[in-house]
Design a protein around this nucleic acid. Sequence first.
DNA 1: TAGCTGCCTTGATGTACGTCAACCTAACTG
DNA 2: CAGTTAGGTTGACGTACATCAAGGCAGCTA
Lengths: 250, 250
Amino acid sequence: MSAFDVNKMTPLSEAARRPARAQSPCQACTVRHLTVCAPLNDQEVQEVAAISQNVEMSPGDPLFDEGERASQVYNVTAGTMKVYKLLSDGRRQVTGFLFPGDFLGLANNDTYAYSAEAVTHATLCRFPRAKLDKLLERYPKMEKRLLSIASHELAVAQEQMLLLGRKTAKEKIASFLLTLSERAESRGQTGNPVSVPMSRTDIGDYLGLTTETVSRTFTNLRGGGTIALRNGGKVEILDVDALHDVAQGD
Amino acid sequence: MSAFDVNKMTPLSEAARRPARAQSPCQACTVRHLTVCAPLNDQEVQEVAAISQNVEMSPGDPLFDEGERASQVYNVTAGTMKVYKLLSDGRRQVTGFLFPGDFLGLANNDTYAYSAEAVTHATLCRFPRAKLDKLLERYPKMEKRLLSIASHELAVAQEQMLLLGRKTAKEKIASFLLTLSERAESRGQTGNPVSVPMSRTDIGDYLGLTTETVSRTFTNLRGGGTIALRNGGKVEILDVDALHDVAQGD
DNA sequence: TAGCTGCCTTGATGTACGTCAACCTAACTG
DNA sequence: CAGTTAGGTTGACGTACATCAAGGCAGCTA
């Protein structure tokens, strides 16, 4: 184990504390996500799986804080996580929500650039960075895969900058719902009705709004017949075209 | 030459149109930027330099547009570039300014995710993507370098999201000036007074403000004795500590 | 069933920043 | 040198969203 142990500051389940090396359930995620664009052979997959451990989180559990030594890399296998940055006075910007298949802590420098926390119950696959780096040395195609992931995240971040800097509250919410829906479908889940597992506060901190404005805007879209709010944090998109129009501002 | 030729839609100087392969001045940039974290030997440097061409831009010249086939990668060798995204009604978000040493067009998918344009006279080093990819296959350490660059850009993007979503106009301007100053110093230029080569409109589109608000905020900071506006688009930071305090919101 | 507690909604009011418009200056141009 | 143009600044006014405040409603616990 490395000097930094995530268990020290995060309440994890017993399952997570056990060094689940041998029968690590993370083989699934490794195979699925690291190999999509860079297929590894069985032996390589085994090697990657061997260095991973399972982590379980409850809603609100912190995974790591901005500025901490970034000794672990994570892959979300179930549930929803959020990453955010804080100003000294407590203002918060959620920079992203993470769903199964997404990576966490890929920063190149040795400290995390943001804090990470569970939104729902979630399970993660944890890789010690040092060991992962060693594997990357041997398998350049995995590195290529990581570069591809980072590039994609960068494009997503730029889209979010456009949203934060130039869109109205209504456009922000519409864009947010459409993105959530598309991401759900790309994971093979249902995109309509779309599951919205995070609180109004989290949505506001993601879109640069207050909870009140988020709430009012949902109400507004509902009143216009564009969406309907269902039980269990689900939003049904009644008029996809209209929602797209709203998101683009026309 | 590839099917897509940047010359077709961008007014470039005669020097840029010439296939300056043999005596490409881009050796300098290649050596400097691609090798900082992944030193190449002389032969490797030659190979990289061999596939590069020099490009010159005048203020306002477009380099490429969002959605175009991304067949080229660029490295800025002199001057300032900007990259931006547009909404259908013309609202604009500048997602970044690029200075010597910065890369452009590193997106993994085959179209550019943003448009790029010259802010000042600028020179760029152009690499055909296909050839660069081939080199990357052979030299994994270059790929590592690119991953490191992408990760750093991602961290910068997240910081910008915090700014766009949660900072006031005054905090935005103060943060902007400090960042410009730090970047100038990291390039070996003078950080104070700092050169601010872009227009108020560009600054506004970068910070999610209007030109009027940018102008008023500069005036406000000047009135408070924190900065002074000098000739030639230079800003002198009179009280660095105060500017830091403003940027953080305390 | 009552009493919490956390999240959401809704209303009344405030304000930071946008919008509209005038003017100023510097750099071109004939 | 007058005329023109493109930034930049400043002022008056409007508004989208924040702030402050009061309920509503589900999910706990006793």
